[in-house]
Design a protein around this nucleic acid. Structure first.
Length: 114
DNA sequence: AATCTGACGGGCA
DNA sequence: GTGCCCGCCAGAT
Protein backbone atom coordinates (compact mmCIF):
# COMPACT_ATOMS: atom_id res chain seq x y z
CA UNK A 1 0.00 0.00 0.00
CA UNK A 2 2.37 2.57 -1.18
CA UNK A 3 1.70 6.22 -1.56
CA UNK A 4 1.39 7.01 -5.18
CA UNK A 5 1.85 10.67 -4.83
CA UNK A 6 3.42 12.61 -2.09
CA UNK A 7 1.19 15.33 -0.76
CA UNK A 8 2.27 18.84 -1.64
CA UNK A 9 1.72 19.89 1.92
CA UNK A 10 1.38 18.04 5.21
CA UNK A 11 4.85 18.86 6.39
CA UNK A 12 5.87 19.66 9.91
CA UNK A 13 6.56 23.18 8.83
CA UNK A 14 3.14 23.70 7.32
CA UNK A 15 1.36 22.03 10.20
CA UNK A 16 3.25 24.21 12.61
CA UNK A 17 2.23 27.30 10.69
CA UNK A 18 -1.42 26.30 10.86
CA UNK A 19 -1.09 25.55 14.52
CA UNK A 20 0.39 28.93 15.32
CA UNK A 21 -2.15 30.79 13.19
CA UNK A 22 -4.96 28.94 14.89
CA UNK A 23 -3.58 30.12 18.21
CA UNK A 24 -3.90 33.75 17.21
CA UNK A 25 -6.42 35.34 19.59
CA UNK A 26 -9.44 37.07 18.18
CA UNK A 27 -8.86 40.70 17.39
CA UNK A 28 -5.13 40.08 17.01
CA UNK A 29 -2.94 39.71 13.96
CA UNK A 30 0.55 38.56 13.16
CA UNK A 31 2.98 38.65 10.28
CA UNK A 32 4.34 35.90 8.07
CA UNK A 33 7.85 36.78 9.17
CA UNK A 34 6.88 36.51 12.84
CA UNK A 35 5.56 33.00 12.31
CA UNK A 36 8.55 32.06 10.24
CA UNK A 37 10.85 33.39 12.91
CA UNK A 38 8.96 31.49 15.58
CA UNK A 39 9.42 28.29 13.59
CA UNK A 40 13.07 29.09 13.17
CA UNK A 41 12.80 29.84 9.47
CA UNK A 42 13.26 33.55 9.69
CA UNK A 43 13.94 33.73 5.98
CA UNK A 44 10.97 31.56 5.19
CA UNK A 45 8.34 34.23 5.46
CA UNK A 46 7.37 33.43 1.89
CA UNK A 47 6.94 29.79 2.76
CA UNK A 48 4.49 30.77 5.46
CA UNK A 49 2.41 32.52 2.85
CA UNK A 50 2.76 29.49 0.63
CA UNK A 51 1.56 27.31 3.46
CA UNK A 52 -1.56 29.42 3.67
CA UNK A 53 -2.30 28.45 0.13
CA UNK A 54 -3.88 25.29 1.44
CA UNK A 55 -4.98 26.72 4.74
CA UNK A 56 -8.00 24.87 6.15
CA UNK A 57 -11.02 26.77 7.45
CA UNK A 58 -9.68 26.19 10.92
CA UNK A 59 -6.88 28.55 10.10
CA UNK A 60 -7.80 32.23 10.42
CA UNK A 61 -5.53 33.32 7.60
CA UNK A 62 -7.20 36.71 7.66
CA UNK A 63 -5.31 37.37 10.87
CA UNK A 64 -2.01 36.97 9.10
CA UNK A 65 -0.62 39.96 7.26
CA UNK A 66 2.77 41.14 6.11
CA UNK A 67 5.23 43.09 8.23
CA UNK A 68 3.67 46.33 7.00
CA UNK A 69 0.28 45.42 8.38
CA UNK A 70 -1.03 45.26 4.84
CA UNK A 71 -3.67 42.71 3.91
CA UNK A 72 -1.55 41.33 1.12
CA UNK A 73 -3.35 38.01 1.06
CA UNK A 74 -6.84 39.40 0.83
CA UNK A 75 -6.78 38.81 -2.89
CA UNK A 76 -6.40 35.09 -2.31
CA UNK A 77 -9.56 34.76 -0.29
CA UNK A 78 -12.79 33.60 -1.78
CA UNK A 79 -13.85 37.21 -1.61
CA UNK A 80 -11.27 39.94 -1.51
CA UNK A 81 -13.31 41.75 1.12
CA UNK A 82 -13.52 38.76 3.44
CA UNK A 83 -10.19 39.51 5.05
CA UNK A 84 -10.67 43.15 5.98
CA UNK A 85 -14.32 42.56 6.69
CA UNK A 86 -13.52 39.80 9.11
CA UNK A 87 -10.76 41.80 10.76
CA UNK A 88 -13.03 44.78 11.21
CA UNK A 89 -15.62 42.46 12.65
CA UNK A 90 -13.11 41.40 15.25
CA UNK A 91 -12.43 44.99 16.20
CA UNK A 92 -9.36 45.56 14.07
CA UNK A 93 -9.22 48.93 12.40
CA UNK A 94 -8.59 48.34 8.73
CA UNK A 95 -8.36 51.18 6.26
CA UNK A 96 -7.41 50.86 2.64
CA UNK A 97 -6.43 47.22 3.15
CA UNK A 98 -4.11 48.25 5.92
CA UNK A 99 -4.30 47.70 9.65
CA UNK A 100 -4.19 51.03 11.43
CA UNK A 101 -3.65 49.57 14.88
CA UNK A 102 -1.25 46.97 13.59
CA UNK A 103 1.32 47.55 16.32
CA UNK A 104 -1.44 47.41 18.89
CA UNK A 105 -3.08 44.24 17.66
CA UNK A 106 0.16 42.59 16.66
CA UNK A 107 0.50 39.17 18.24
CA UNK A 108 4.01 37.84 18.50
CA UNK A 109 4.09 34.01 18.82
CA UNK A 110 7.66 34.08 20.04
CA UNK A 111 6.54 36.26 22.95
CA UNK A 112 3.08 34.91 23.65
CA UNK A 113 3.75 31.24 22.99
CA UNK A 114 7.40 31.44 23.91
C1' DA B 1 15.74 19.47 -15.93
C1' DA B 2 15.63 24.48 -15.91
C1' DT B 3 13.40 28.76 -15.04
C1' DC B 4 9.94 31.95 -12.94
C1' DT B 5 6.85 33.08 -9.97
C1' DG B 6 5.02 33.88 -5.28
C1' DA B 7 0.08 35.53 0.77
C1' DC B 8 7.70 38.40 2.53
C1' DG B 9 11.50 40.73 4.83
C1' DG B 10 15.36 43.39 5.36
C1' DG B 11 19.05 46.30 3.56
C1' DC B 12 20.69 49.90 0.72
C1' DA B 13 20.29 54.18 -2.54
C1' DG C 1 10.83 58.81 4.49
C1' DT C 2 10.24 56.30 0.15
C1' DG C 3 11.67 53.22 -3.45
C1' DC C 4 14.28 49.54 -5.38
C1' DC C 5 17.01 45.20 -5.12
C1' DC C 6 18.49 40.95 -3.23
C1' DG C 7 17.87 36.81 -0.57
C1' DC C 8 15.06 32.41 0.74
C1' DC C 9 12.31 27.91 -0.12
C1' DA C 10 9.13 25.45 -2.53
C1' DG C 11 5.80 24.70 -6.07
C1' DA C 12 4.17 25.18 -10.87
C1' DT C 13 5.00 25.46 -15.86
Amino acid sequence: MAVHKKKPVENNFFSDVYEVVKLIPKGRVTSYGAIAHYLGTKSGARMVGWAMHGCPKDVPAHRVVNSSGLLTGKHHFKNAQTMEKRLKREGVKVLNDKIMTFKEVFWNPSEELA
